[in-house]
Design a protein around this nucleic acid. Structure first.
Lengths: 108, 108
DNA sequence: GTTATTCATCGTACATCGACGATAAACGAT
DNA sequence: ATCGTTTATCGTCGATGTACGATGAATAAC
């Protein structure tokens, strides 16, 4: 019911719509897009650096980061003082693939 | 501030992050993904047909359709009795392009 | 030990979402 | 004219999102 067969080149990859929708939701805020983009430029960031970069309270940034981490798009490792956030590039690539597959099926 | 320069092949296409985030938001619900997919299969649909297809109240479907229309992904023309909903395939293609551009910039 | 820094989490306040039923308008059919 | 169908919109209710300040824990520096 929540799966869609997609005529893709990658054989038999059905798309799980709730999962895909969750991915979209994680990206549905400009601040998170900016954060993700910022993370992608550097290799790793601590929360503080992002707070300094954007004009947001530290708690707000922490929340946005959590959303990205929960969505699996960002890696998180608590380090000594600063925590280490890193784009999970494979996950982003995977999401891009899924999004592309889904959207191209909608404009063939 | 909300624009990101992306090293894309398509020259000079800066991405407007609030706009992109709005696109993501429109797709951030499984029901809307299913509706969009359904619309893409048929050429055009009335609201009723979608109501019959999915187990949702008519008002709910109408709301979801409105979101898709407001996001510019679906065309809307009120016809005699039934209204006519149609995927705007160019808009979807455009969004796919923007998403791809943004996401690939995040996993280079 | 004390202090400063960094961070996650909690609580709060407000806005928005998502579902539904009810309703009214438009229209075809009788 | 009346009835049934289709649809958009309104109101409501609970859940979720978004922002912030406050707080406490961990740790580096002194």
């Amino acid at each position: 019911m929540n799966n869609v067969d997609i005529p893709s080149k990658t054989a038999g990859a059905a798309t799980d719509l709730p999962v895909l929708a969750a991915g979209f939701a994680a990206l549905a805020h400009p601040a998170r897009l900016r954060i993700l983009c910022h993370l992608a430029r550097r290799d790793a960031c601590c929360c503080r650096e992002i707070v300094d970069t954007f004009e947001l309270a530290q708690s707000t940034v922490s929340q946005h980061l959590k959303v990205l981490v929960d969505a699996g798009l960002v890696h998180y490792r608590p380090e000594n003082r600063r925590s280490r956030y890193m784009v999970d590039r494979e996950a982003v690539a995977r999401l891009e693939e899924q999004v592309s597959t889904f959207l191209s099926c909608c404009h063939v």
